[in-house]
């Protein structure tokens, strides 16, 4: 136990500061936002991840968002176990035909605002797999997409930037009287 506590204390807090990207920076980061969040979501975003056919590369980098360096939860972003608890779907992979209905049903089960982030080149445009007998290609071919993040796979810093941008733009919205 002492060794464990000693290790925790010695490593300390390694979480890196992360500032939301300026709008101008978004293109460089390969992030395209077509719809932002309502201000009611400014402090918290519940994400349901759906692997619709990815090679698992994207998932590895989404996992990294929760490591101590990025610690995405400090921004109120958390991954939930059911689409019914989610504000947002984070979809990876080309949509395989065998996952098409599962993705549609997950989308249907998700309450408004149902923000959909297509993450990774496959989700954005079909990537190496395109449209075939087995693949529907891009996520937008199956459900409406609000945010695109390019990359094979997108790095955690890129994912974090996109999420921070969404939360910041929600925060910046005018509060109706």
């Amino acid at each position: 136990m002492l060794k464990l506590l000693n290790k925790i204390i010695r490593i300390g807090v390694i979480t890196e500061p992360a500032t939301p990207p300026a709008a101008a920076e978004m293109e460089r980061l390969g992030i395209e936002v077509k719809r932002t969040l309502d201000r009611r979501f400014a402090g918290s975003l519940a994400i349901r991840h759906v692997d619709a056919g990815s090679c698992n590369g994207c998932e590895l980098e989404i996992h990294a968002l929760n490591n101590s360096y990025y610690d995405v939860e400090r921004f109120g972003v958390h991954f939930v176990a059911s689409p019914r608890h989610a504000d947002c779907l984070l979809v990876t992979g080309p949509v395989s035909r065998n996952m098409e209905m599962a993705l549609r049903r997950t989308y249907d089960a998700c309450p408004e605002p149902k923000l959909v982030i297509a993450s990774g080149d496959c989700a954005c445009n079909g990537g190496e797999f395109g449209v075939s007998y087995a693949s529907c290609g891009a996520v937008a071919n199956v459900i409406p997409v609000d945010v695109r993040i390019a990359g094979c796979p997108p790095a955690p810093a890129q994912l974090l930037a996109a999420l921070q941008y969404l939360l910041q733009s929600a925060r910046a919205q005018h509060i109706p009287r």
Binding site: D51, G53, S54, G93, P94, S96, R97, N98, M99, A102, E128, F129, G130, S132, Y133, A134, S135
Partner: peptide, 11 residues
């Protein structure tokens, strides 16, 4: 299994 079959052999 087979849910992420995306036709790699054909591709």
């Amino acid at each position: 299994l087979g849910y992420v079959h995306k036709g790699i052999e054909k591709a």
